[in-house]
Design a protein around this nucleic acid. Structure first.
Lengths: 224, 224
DNA sequence: TCAATAGTGTCTGTGAGACACTATCGA
DNA sequence: TCGATAGTGTCTCACAGACACTATTGA
């Protein structure tokens, strides 16, 4: 049997934190005006794109290109989530390779396309993007519980209280300051940047930075 | 830009335990005799196959079909590993969706295509299958450390000493009997089958079975 | 000085790991 | 009875979590 070629897209789920809440990047699809066959017109969808075999040497590079075209920025961290195949829309059998990606709020030019997680989960998204979104949220929550992943939701410099807050937002649980700092310390992934952040009429907090970009550490034990 | 269709294969890395050693399933590719353009003739390769959009409704179903065609058996457990894209062989830009799969030795009709891990890692496999194999081994080792995954390398009924042995083989570390049993107990995944296994002139060991098929439990903590 | 948050020290209960013990089989 | 492995009980040390304490700022 001769193999049949397939249409394949890359569909990233991009997370950030805005106003103390986890948000996901979603773009509105075209209206029916231009093309009467447009699938899921006006629906919100993940910021995906088709692989271009002429310029994309690998899946990771395809992801970087697509995200930079859609957002004008580079994400702090990404990893492959899962691939989905089947009759996912009206155009036949297609393949989607999904990613999760984290970006710091500072890199965002506009907050227009960012939707709070809770809202996004209640929307009906294009294609099977609800399934992908839910798997992405699940992966994120899981991984936050045993790794330093949330560092990549912050900027180049960050304080430990900020980092703890991000963990608390995603895990939906308050953490003990002392234990939390011990855990982060043992990861040996960050170092003081030498700067401080003054936030008000109280002791300023030390700013830290990653020793190496793009890496994460897995704790030997879950946080909660 | 019009999307370009791609050729896509499913490439499972199937593990089993034979004679106390982890093995992986590899098939020899065709010789040049039949087709002078055959890529990687006579090389060993993962037991992959092309997706057939006419009969495969999803990637998981495609995997099941391909594995059953190659082995005549159904695996005990599988999960998606990672997708790879690029100019992976002479035939142009192709996509591979890899899986890891576990099967119990009892299900094997022949041991012909099973290669010990250590040997397989030293071979030069077809395409980029060395990369896929190494990622699969890494995922397996990682996951064994914090989950009940190894249960699926055993048959329907198994003893705790057998299970501990499998952990020790993959982790390459001896484990304390008492602690190990506490861990498995707390997973609440298995129950006595009511039978016993007599192995010699000593106390027989109780046989256990999974309460539900195909499931795994994640411990909150790494074993080693 | 106070209020507020940052950051550190201390104490205690839990529980994992080390290891000793009992159980059960065939010979 | 003995030798071998299966399975259970116990004890202890480490360490995570609770929480109290000190540090530093602006007003």
């Amino acid at each position: 049997m001769k193999p049949i070629p397939l249409f394949c897209s890359i569909d990233p789920v991009v997370f950030t934190i805005i106003n103390g809440k986890l948000h996901v990047l979603l773009f509105k699809r075209n209206s029916l005006n231009n093309n009467p066959n447009e699938p899921f017109p006006d629906y919100l969808a993940l910021p995906g794109g088709a692989i271009n075999v002429n310029i994309d040497d690998s899946l990771d590079l395809a992801l970087s290109r697509i995200l930079s075209e859609k957002t004008g920025a580079t994400v702090n961290y990404f990893e492959q989530l899962e691939s989905f195949g089947g009759f996912r829309d009206t155009r036949g059998w297609t393949l989607s390779i999904s990613y999760i990606a984290l970006i710091s709020p500072q890199k965002l030019k506009s907050t227009a396309n960012w939707i709070p997680i809770k809202e996004a989960q209640d929307l009906i998204l294009a294609f099977d993007h609800n399934i992908i979104l839910n798997k992405a949220i699940q992966r994120l929550s899981n991984k936050v519980n045993y790794s330093t992943l949330p560092i990549h939701l912050l900027g180049d410099e960050f304080t430990l209280p900020q980092l703890q807050k991000v963990y608390e937002i995603i895990l939906n649980e308050t953490l003990d300051k002392s234990s939390f700092r011990k855990k982060i310390e043992e990861s040996n992934l960050i170092e003081p940047s030498g700067n401080e952040l003054k936030n008000g009429a109280f002791r300023p907090s030390k700013l830290y930075k990653l020793k190496k970009p793009g890496i994460i550490h897995n704790f030997g034990k879950n946080i909660i």
